[in-house]
Design a protein around this nucleic acid. Structure first.
Length: 476
RNA sequence: GGCCCCAUCGUCUAGAGGCCUAGGACGUCAGGCUUUCAUCCUGAUAACACGGGUUCGAAUCCCGUUGGGGUCACCA
């Protein structure tokens, strides 16, 4: 059984786009194999905890259609899915490692550690000192006596015993074998002095407890994977498949950050992006469809996606292409679907009937839902002024408008259709011996107040005869 | 700085030794269609980081250099 997970920390406002990307990969891989996609909340850092973040993350995932099969919101066979509710499990395992001689108690205080760092010229020497002094300081018996003596508020940590100069090799599905020396790793704290586990202990214990088959996470975790490998080995556990996906980048290639791009998943939804478009765009990061097509839905992605086809190169997140993709999706969905999304997006500002009528006029010119409002604004607000360049540029401006008004007035109410309006205006334009471009540009500005608008005839039909005549007449 | 990862148009990518005078997409530019804008169509622009090997033959394999990124916490 394929089981994947994402393990977000509730430390921000929302789920980060990079995490949404990782979530997509995890979700797709699980779905492809009829497996399970798990969300586990890693809230072991109490100092960075943000109230409400967990809910927002879950909401965002659901909004994008990446619903989790197990998690704190829906439960599951391996509950609880919040690490803060699993503290006993971690402590038990940390102690097990101490018993096995794979970890040790440490009473070193912050200042003692700082002192140690000061004495060491290099990281390597620091690690040696830590190994030689800290770990040898107490036998298990001594430590237990000391902890007992300290009573309730006993402060100590449990550290992993990391041997010097041993090569740790693990297999990454995308990159192949990766070897890192233990000289790069100091004795890792597994259990913090506040009784909470560190990420390293918790992630290994939970991934095993929750039967995670594929650990698919961002590339930034590669350097700490040897720590996890040591833990799997220390416990005698079988390792999952490791797969480190590329990190999304800013245009300057640095790790995608809010300084250069909006990074919160919710932001894109709030700014008129379709979940389908975002996911489709994200799926093109480090991966490409075997047929080289670029616009496809989630089901197609799940069908075609292979984990080891993922590239190891960190792709730049390009808002321009995302926008194009969004435009493609706006045109791709059914008009009625689009209408309903618009109503929802604008929180009822427009009623569904109005939106249904205007969607055909604007569907192929919108790139985001946000562009709808400016396009239809003129239906509600008559233009208040005309750019003076028009009056100056067109000889007999007022007279021409007068004639337009007369023509429009002459169209019977029951014939007030886009086609008829178009014919009449064409005819008038010919009578006046004006260039169509100029004539219609003028008419457009008078009716909509803008040089750019939805198709004129259809717009006038929707606006109604009375309103159109009024808008034209007002210019006399 | 140590260690690890990576390296094809500005960007996303195809390419798993000959099919590559390197293909597609976004962007940009030019043109067409059009009653504006958009859509759509056509065309143009632009890349195998560099240097050594291996091979009859290298974008593809190996080594080095350079460049970029990640990571080195009682944060995840």
């Amino acid at each position: 059984m394929i089981r994947t997970r994402i393990a977000p920390s509730p430390t921000g406002d929302d789920i980060h786009i990079g995490n949404l990307y990782t979530a997509l990969i995890n979700w797709a891989w699980a779905k492809k194999h009829n497996g399970r996609f798990v969300v586990r909340i890693e809230d072991t850092d109490r100092t960075r905890y943000v109230e409400g973040a967990e809910q927002k993350i879950l909401e965002s995932l659901a909004s994008y259609g990446l619903k989790n099969d197990e998690g704190p919101d829906v439960g599951g066979p391996y509950a609880p899915y919040r690490q803060s509710e699993r503290l006993e499990l971690y402590k038990r395992h940390a102690l097990e490692l101490v018993e096995k001689g794979k970890a040790y108690f440490s009473f070193a205080t912050k200042s003692e550690l700082d002192d140690l760092k000061k004495r060491a010229d290099t990281k390597l020497i620091y690690r040696q000192l830590l190994r030689d002094e800290s770990r040898a300081a107490f036998t298990i018996e001594d430590a237990n006596t000391r902890i007992a003596a300290m009573g309730e508020g006993a402060e100590y940590t449990i550290r992993l015993l990391v041997p010097a100069n041993v090569n740790i090799t693990f297999h990454d599905l995308i990159r192949g074998d990766i070897t890192i020396s233990t000289d790069q790793i100091d004795d890792q704290v597994l259990l913090k002095s506040d009784g909470f586990p560190t990420y390293h202990l918790a992630v290994v214990v939970d991934d095993v407890a929750m039967r995670i088959s594929h650990v698919i996470r961002a590339e930034e975790w590669i350097a700490s994977t040897p720590k996890h490998v040591m833990l799997y080995d220390a416990f005698g556990w079988e390792k999952p498949v490791f797969c480190h996906v590329p990190i999304l980048r800013n245009p300057d290639k640095s790790k995608l950050s809010k300084r250069k791009n909006p990074v919160w998943a919710g932001w894109y939804l709030e700014n008129g992006y379709l979940p389908e478009a975002m996911l489709n765009y994200l799926s093109l990061m480090g991966w490409s469809h075997p047929d080289q097509i670029e616009v496809f839905d989630l089901a197609e992605f799940v069908k075609q996606f292979e984990l080891n086809d993922l590239s190891a190169v960190g792709p730049v997140f390009d808002p321009k292409k995302l926008e194009w993709m969004n435009g493609m999706w706006i045109r791709k969905i059914r008009p009625d679907d689009l209408a309903q999304r618009l109503v929802k997006f604008y929180k009822g500002r427009y009623d569904i009937e109005f939106v249904r009528k205007t969607v055909p006029l604007v569907q192929e010119r919108m790139r985001t839902l946000m562009e709808y409002a400016p396009y239809v604004e003129f239906f509600f607000t008559a233009p208040t002024s005309i750019p003076t360049e028009f009056e100056l540029d067109i000889a007999g401006f007022a007279d021409i408008l007068q004639k337009v008004a007369v023509r429009l007035e002459a169209i019977p109410e029951d014939m007030w259709k886009a086609e008829k309006i178009g014919e009449e205006m064409q005819a008038l334009c010919a009578d006046l011996e004006m260039k169509p471009g100029k004539f219609f540009q003028m008419l457009r500005v008078v009716i909509t107040g803008k040089k750019v608008s939805p198709p004129l005839n259809e717009s006038m039909e929707l606006l109604g005869k009375k309103e159109c005549v009024q808008r034209v007449s007002r210019r006399k």
